[in-house]
Amino acid sequence: MNIVVCIKQVPDSDKVTIDRETNRLNRAGVPSIINPFDENALEMALQLKDAHGGKVTVISMGPPQAEEALRTALSHGADEAVLISDRKFGGADTWATSYTISLAVKKLGDVDLVLFGKQAIDGDTAQVGPGVAHFLDIPALTYAKAVEVTGETLKVTKVTEDGYEVWDIDKPCALTVVKEANQLRMPSLKKKMAAKKAEIPCWGFNELQPDEEKIGLAGSPTKVSKVFAPPVKLNKEILSGEPAEMITELIQKLKERNVL
């Protein structure tokens, strides 16, 4: 089975701190990681490959340094990697990102399955997976936690608000994968050494030949008009003392706020 896994490089949120003065994120010097949910997508791909053979290709759209994320994915066991990068792709919203990624998947050719993380932890939209699927004209299921190959189709378990659903879906298809699915295996030493030296092709405007109106800023219907820190809690109250007194006071305050 030929599987493509789309991975996004994101800042490591565990290491991001908030500037208490300005209430903004300190992103400087924060290491980049593979989007955590994309690790689950990658592991799902690797398990399918272990069981059924085939090839796992990771692709990432981003600035040149996103290559690091791809090398990490190779060290975990992906077979090949492609970077999608071009200044002209910059500023893309999910619409333009989906379009651009879909061109790269098409260029990879014969693909049975395209996997995504549930959502990226920075943009947080969860929109790219279904978007790419539509551009590729393949069916999509979101929030997948398990997949099984049943002849020509796949049997997919997807998480819902209050349980799960089991679906039968034709190949090729797209899935977005949740954390419950699995845990990414550790990298292997040999693959890690090989990944350092691996050739990673970079596909840009010339390679993908996109419609210029559908990429980058121009291809993005949404515009970020302003970014601001979430409102801070204004009248915070700190209680201390004996547990019984604190709780009595707390309960009274919660009642005053009509939340108890």
């Binding site: 999910t94 989906s98 379009y99 969860a126 997976g129 299921l141 219907p221």
Partner: peptide, 18 residues
């Protein structure tokens, strides 16, 4: 969150998440 992103690319619309 499955439907809206699919429709968004179908009808050429921007979609703001969540």
């Amino acid at each position: 969150r499955s439907l809206a992103p699919t429709v968004a690319v179908m009808v050429n619309a921007g979609l703001t998440a969540d």
